[in-house]
Design a protein around this nucleic acid. Structure first.
Length: 116
DNA sequence: CTTTTGACTGAGT
DNA sequence: AACTCAGCCAAAA
């Protein structure tokens, strides 16, 4: 059992189903503790490797982009999400429809658990 | 070892 | 509804 929180966070982000988005809290919960939400954003910021880590599927609880310049800009994030099939409402992601459901969360959790 | 800070969140004003 | 405040955790200074 490694304490590599960042690794678990990355894995969790990579496990986000296509066409869905996850909040920092959910990623943190998948990483092991929902209170790590702050650290999730921090770790993702350290990882510009959006190719292996789809950071664009990670949004804040309001469904908005992180606010900061992510992998290229919030506009880029929106375009990426739209390309994934995620609709935007009033400039933010429609969380009611595209936030990962309990089943998705369960699947991701299981995969993360099965990993190590 | 103490302090600061950050891609956050929820509650209070 | 918009803004402020405090709580949370881990890493870097």
């Amino acid at each position: 059992m490694d304490k590599n929180l960042a690794g678990r966070i990355y894995r969790a982000v990579q496990l986000i189903p296509l066409g869905k988005v996850a909040t920092y809290s959910q990623i943190a919960a998948l990483a092991g503790n929902c209170n790590l939400r702050r650290y999730v954003g921090n770790v993702l910021h350290e990882n510009p490797s959006n190719a292996i880590t789809p950071c664009h599927r990670v949004v804040n609880a309001k469904g908005f982009c992180s606010g900061s310049f992510a992998f290229g800009g919030p506009l880029v994030q929106q375009e990426k999400l739209e390309a994934e099939g995620i609709a935007f409402t009033n400039g933010h992601v429609d969380m009611e429809r595209f936030c990962i459901s309990g089943d998705d969360f369960e699947s991701m959790s299981m995969e993360l658990r099965d990993e190590r």
